[in-house]
Simulated scan of single mutants.
Amino acid sequence: MLTEVLHTLPQVLIDGLTLGAVYAVVALGYTMVYGILELINFAHGEIFMTGAFIGTAMLLSFTSLGLMAAMPALLALIIIILITSVLTGLLGVGIERVAYRPVRNSPKLIALITAIGISFVLQDLIRFITELKKGNYILTGPSLFTDQIVVKTSAILPVFSDASFKSSFIIVLVTAIILMVGLDFFINRTKWGMAMRAVAQDRETAALMTVNVNRVIAITFFVGSALGGATGVLFAIQYGTIDPYIGFILGLKAFTAAVLGGIGNIRGAMLGGILIGLLEMFAAANLTIITNGVFGAEYKDVFAFAILILVLIFKPEGLFGKAVTEKV
Rank of each mutant, 00 (worst) to 15 (best):
R97Y: 00
I81F: 07
L75E: 07
I116R: 12
F120Q: 14
I110G: 06
L77S: 09
S61Y: 13
I116M: 14
S64H: 13
V86M: 12
H44N: 13
L112H: 11
P72W: 02
T63D: 15
S119E: 12
A70I: 08
I83P: 00
L112V: 13
L59T: 01
A52G: 12
T50D: 00
G51E: 09
L77V: 10
I113P: 05
L122S: 12
L59W: 05
S61Q: 13
Q123H: 14
V121Q: 03
Y34R: 09
L82G: 12
A73K: 03
A57I: 13
S119F: 04
V33N: 06
I80K: 07
G94N: 04
I110V: 14
I118D: 05
I118Y: 02
A69V: 01
M58Y: 03
L109H: 11
S85Q: 07
L90K: 05
V121L: 15
T31D: 08
P107N: 14
A111M: 03
T31P: 10
M58Q: 09
I80F: 01
T88Y: 01
A76H: 01
M32C: 11
Y100D: 06
T114W: 03
G92F: 07
G94I: 04
I118Q: 02
G45L: 00
A52P: 04
M58N: 02
T63V: 11
S61H: 04
T114H: 02
F48E: 02
L122A: 10
K108H: 15
V98S: 11
L65I: 07
M58H: 08
G92D: 08
L82C: 08
V121K: 04
F53C: 07
M49E: 05
L59N: 05
Q123R: 14
G51Y: 09
A99T: 08
I80W: 06
I40A: 13
L65Y: 15
Y100M: 15
P107W: 05
A76N: 14
S85V: 03
F53S: 02
L75M: 14
I78V: 15
I47E: 10
L65P: 02
V98R: 07
G55P: 12
T56G: 09
T114N: 05
T50I: 06
M71L: 15
T56E: 05
A52C: 11
I95N: 05
S61E: 14
V121H: 02
G35D: 02
A76Q: 09
E96V: 10
M71G: 08
I83R: 08
D124W: 09
A111L: 10
L67I: 14
F42A: 12
L112W: 10
T84C: 07
T63A: 15
A111R: 02
